[in-house]
Computed example of a mutant assay.
Amino acid sequence: MTPTGQPHLPQDHPPVPAAKIGVLIANLGTPDGYDYWSMRRYLNEFLSDQRVIDYARWKWQPLLQLVILSKRPFSSGANYKLIWNEEKNESPLMTITRSQADSLRQVLRGRHGDRVMVDFCMRYGRPSTKAKVREMVEAGCTRIVFFPLYPHYAGATTATANDQFFRALMDEKWQPASRTVAPYFARSSYIEALAQSVERAYGALETKPDILICSYHGMPKRYLMTGDPYHCQCQKTTRLLKERLGWGDDAITTTFQSVFGPEEWLKPYTVEHVADLAKQGKKRIAVVAPAFSADCIETLEEINGEIRESFEHAGGESFTYIPCLNDDAAHIDMLAEVVDENLWGWI
């Protein structure tokens, strides 16, 4: 064996690690802290992405830099502070995504041994996609499955995550072969995991809610009209969940949250719809967020804070938030199932 660790390489050849396959899961991102400058750096990266805000840069950037980023880091930071994991000094999204990666690694190691390397990255903030791709290449990954943790495809989520992955590959002298994972909004094991989470939550309540709200992250209606499939995929998830639960149409509905800016977004808006339900006499509701693979600011603070308050202020009496699938065993098994399909022919 030569000093390179490879039997057929010359003495002066750079070290070549044993070939592996990388599985890189990706989520949206998180600030490093809830202070002003941490929030500003994060929001600047996020809101400068033209997949997220597609206005002309000459028009959008002055407004973003001079107005929005002078104020919003304070309010967003205050919201993050409410949910911050103080013990680990990180956001819940970071804590949960790391746990998802650890659990997925354990499952895949049991199936494939050390041939598969599992890690996670964030589209915005740290750990960056570029840094994790670099680590995988240095570790010997000649093939990478890139897995954005979004059940539904949207240009502002799945596409921008893939964009960043492809940018990272552009910097690699020896590019690994790569595969990106398709959305899984209609996968039976995903619907089953969602249904089980709803059944567990309902089983723990003394009185069944009047209706289940499936609250999805919103987007401008204009995106739908120009070809983004997200709205239709969300509607299908709700329908499949309803069918799996065996419920009627009046027991479950679809809404959209996180509206930003002046233009019309996908409707109905969750924050308004829950208030309307309370006024119509539906005093007990439950809310689940199928588009989020992990609890984050939009679920822990927006749904369980702002949206809950809207419902209660309108006369609602019982509000139940059903957590995201997070690192639930059924969720991890489903993710591993998807990964194994994408490893087909590679391992």
Rank of each mutant, 00 (worst) to 15 (best):
248 G>N: 12
169 L>W: 07
321 Y>M: 14
224 L>D: 08
86 E>F: 06
319 F>S: 12
223 Y>G: 02
87 E>G: 10
14 P>N: 08
12 D>N: 15
11 Q>S: 08
122 M>W: 06
217 H>V: 01
64 L>W: 08
77 G>P: 04
29 G>Q: 05
73 P>T: 08
87 E>I: 06
45 E>M: 03
8 H>W: 14
127 P>C: 02
163 D>R: 03
345 G>N: 05
145 V>D: 02
49 D>R: 03
226 T>F: 03
272 E>Y: 12
123 R>V: 01
288 V>H: 01
180 T>C: 10
187 R>Q: 14
30 T>S: 09
23 V>T: 09
180 T>H: 11
289 A>T: 15
39 M>T: 04
294 A>M: 02
232 C>G: 08
331 H>A: 12
270 T>V: 06
276 D>H: 13
331 H>L: 01
104 L>M: 04
298 E>T: 02
259 V>L: 13
246 G>T: 10
278 A>I: 07
300 L>W: 04
111 R>H: 15
41 R>T: 03
297 I>Y: 07
275 A>H: 13
191 I>R: 04
200 R>A: 06
316 G>L: 07
279 K>E: 15
120 F>P: 00
75 S>M: 08
287 V>Q: 09
101 A>P: 01
226 T>E: 11
89 N>A: 12
287 V>H: 07
77 G>S: 11
327 D>F: 11
284 R>L: 08
160 T>A: 10
78 A>K: 15
140 G>F: 06
314 A>P: 00
233 Q>M: 03
185 F>R: 00
218 G>P: 02
144 I>F: 14
310 S>P: 03
272 E>H: 12
60 W>T: 03
132 K>Y: 01
15 P>D: 12
181 V>I: 07
3 P>Q: 09
4 T>I: 09
165 F>K: 01
303 I>Q: 11
252 I>F: 07
196 Q>G: 06
340 D>K: 14
45 E>T: 06
330 A>D: 14
33 G>C: 07
325 L>S: 03
301 E>I: 02
65 Q>P: 00
303 I>G: 05
126 R>C: 05
205 L>M: 15
213 I>L: 14
89 N>H: 10
311 F>D: 13
337 E>A: 07
115 R>H: 11
44 N>L: 02
204 A>T: 12
288 V>F: 15
11 Q>I: 11
262 P>K: 15
126 R>Q: 14
337 E>N: 11
138 E>T: 07
101 A>E: 12
69 L>N: 08
94 M>W: 13
240 L>D: 06
175 Q>K: 15
313 H>D: 15
284 R>D: 13
276 D>A: 06
294 A>F: 03
236 K>R: 12
82 L>Y: 15
161 A>V: 00
108 L>F: 13
129 T>F: 01
97 T>L: 04
264 E>T: 12
305 G>R: 09
235 Q>C: 11
213 I>F: 06
276 D>K: 09
227 G>F: 08
310 S>W: 01
48 S>P: 03
245 L>R: 08
104 L>Y: 11
214 C>L: 08
252 I>S: 07
106 Q>T: 13
146 F>M: 04
231 H>P: 03
281 G>R: 15
3 P>L: 14
266 L>T: 04
267 K>I: 01
63 L>T: 04
269 Y>H: 13
75 S>K: 15
297 I>C: 05
79 N>F: 07
151 P>I: 00
70 S>C: 04
50 Q>L: 00
113 G>K: 05
270 T>M: 07
163 D>F: 05
190 Y>V: 01
49 D>S: 05
